[in-house]
Amino acid sequence: MKREIPLLISFIAGTLIVISLFVPHPPFNKMEETLNSWYIIVSGFTFILGIDSLLLYNWDKIRRKSKDWPFALTVILSFVVTLVWGIVSGVRTGHIFSTNSTFRNYFYLYIYVPLQATMFAILSFFIASAAYRAFRARSLNATLLLITASIIMLGRVPLGNAVLIPVLWIAVLLIAWVVLLEIKATTSASTRVGYILMLILMVVIAVPLTKFLYGNLSAATDWIMDIPQMAAKRGIMLGLALGGIAVSLRIILGIERSYMS
């Protein structure tokens, strides 16, 4: 009973929703409507699952006076203060987010918003540091990724096309440097000639390319986003969609039951 009933519930709910897509007529459309309205109510409760363990974990820390317990106390206290303030202000004005609620006007806008916004803003520092540390042209694929990212970053900001010219030439020089190192390291004369030809070709291409991108950088960025980028994203998502359908089917048919643990 403890296992069969949940499996049956998810089977019925999932199947009815899928059937109602293909048969949008009575009784299925009505059933779908009812199930959706139930789901809207019940799904709200999933947001509070797990919060008990967060509170218990911090409570335990306080009780045992373990290291950093004052911060555990801060967690509990701010939970209580937020909850009480929200309820009092919400009941008094009709909603927590009423325009005249002190909870919205002070707590939400001046405590919660800066906290949440700054938490995410510090990521910019980490990504800058990562770009410097880890964003290396180690292989042809990595170089391609690097070049695309740079074009996009410059293509979406003002003055990007002016900055692109020196950036492009520095990139050409860097590649030339690597190639020259290869020429020095190799002993075969024909490989050397090949490398030298490659260098000349690169410079020959770089001149008109710079000129073209200077005038059309924004359009080039649009093209990358609209065509090759889009095609790859679609390919990846089509794969994910097939995978998603398979997992959903496993859940409905009761093969995948990890949610019951």
Binding site: I5, A13, G14, N36, Y39, A241, I245, Y259
Partner: peptide, 27 residues
Amino acid sequence: RWAIAFAVGMGAGLGIVGMLNGYLVPQ
């Protein structure tokens, strides 16, 4: 588990509908 099974089953059903009708076919 009964309630979670309902939520998960609905999520799976809606997932199939979205992926099939909303993604695979139009894409």
